[in-house]
Design a protein around this nucleic acid. Sequence first.
DNA 1: AACTCTCCCAACCGCGAGCAT
DNA 2: CATGCTCGCGGTTGGGAGAGT
Length: 397
Amino acid sequence: MGRSPCCDKVGLKKGPWTPEEDQKLLAYIEEHGHGSWRALPAKAGLQRCGKSCRLRWSNYLRPDIKRGKFSLQEEQTIIQLHALLGNRWSAIATHLPKRTDNEIKNYWNTHLKKRLAKMGIDPVTHKPKNDALLSSDGQTKDAANLSHMAQWESARLEAEARLVRESKLRSHSFQHQISSTGYVSSSGSASTSASASAQPQRSLDVLKAWNGGWSKSSEGNTVGGPNIAGIGGDLESPTSSLTFSENAPPQIINSSGTGGQNSISLIELVGTSGSSETGIIKEEGEHDWKTLGNSDHHMPENSVSFTSSLHHPDMSISMEGPWTPESLKLNSSHLHIGNVMEEGFTNLLLSDTGVRTLSESGKDSDNSGSDYYEDNKNYWNSILNLVNSSPADSPIF
DNA sequence: AACTCTCCCAACCGCGAGCAT
DNA sequence: CATGCTCGCGGTTGGGAGAGT
């Protein structure tokens, strides 16, 4: 299939856009919608190829774009979604309202990737770089399952994103009709709200199940680990059966988790260092403290409460203290994650200044391998949890 | 002040998917 | 089914800005 000439055409301008060009493009799209990108430049009086116009619009001129520094929450989301989705920037962008895939990609490449690498985490696999050391025991089975589940979920997300795109196209056409009848909107916001309202609540079944199991288990003071295979008729991944604990009986948790599809529970970082304020996570260094439920995004709906597990008598984790193998032990009847997952993840991954590897923070470097493994598991849990806790009403684009 | 180096990000390039014919 | 076209995505690049010497 031959490529269309596009920008190879002589006479077409390349390089940085001038304010005049921006103005022309903006004015044209606001009035007519973009329609066919290929035909747009001529109609708008631009000496650019359609592709360049599309990029300029989608990455810069679109009115529903938020520019500037990424918040902690956004960073966290990117990292976790990247672990789940890989370099599917557009899919990741659907979970970050007002951020473009290009911006996220740039941010990942210039900041987050380096940060992970610096911490000894492979930014591609999101596994500790010395993961090979762990291949001797059965623990890698769990990791493989997690990985598989992530891949599976990733594929599902991809399909979902496709539907979203289609929906977006439809809503755009609709909006186009509206504007042609006299209603001129700032197209981005209009299409955003249209597509957002057209979307069902975005909730990842696997993650919901995961967290449902988690939450339920927390209530019962035991965490047996979610058994994904038992959840819902639509979860059919052949190897999605996942068991964290060999000792604890596998649990089949209804995907509705704590009772309702809209069960609301806050991520409560009770007992964490510094602040005990609900829904606040700490960000060191360049960031401020931010609430999970701040005005922009990521409200606590569908999040998971870890409070009970934190208060469990068997709970041996203190975020104030060192991470010990005991405290992080997974092959016990209690899965000691929760607060550790949230706070630990944040501390581990999002702090430039407070980079704290397990081998550094733990008292015995001999166990750094298994610590790494445990952390890796927490890491994945964190990923899954965060995705699920993304706003139910978050605009997809 | 001048130069070099590094970082960052807007923009480009090429590929693949999907659709129309 | 084959072909051609358009669009979107992800990888990469190049130039400007800022930091360091």
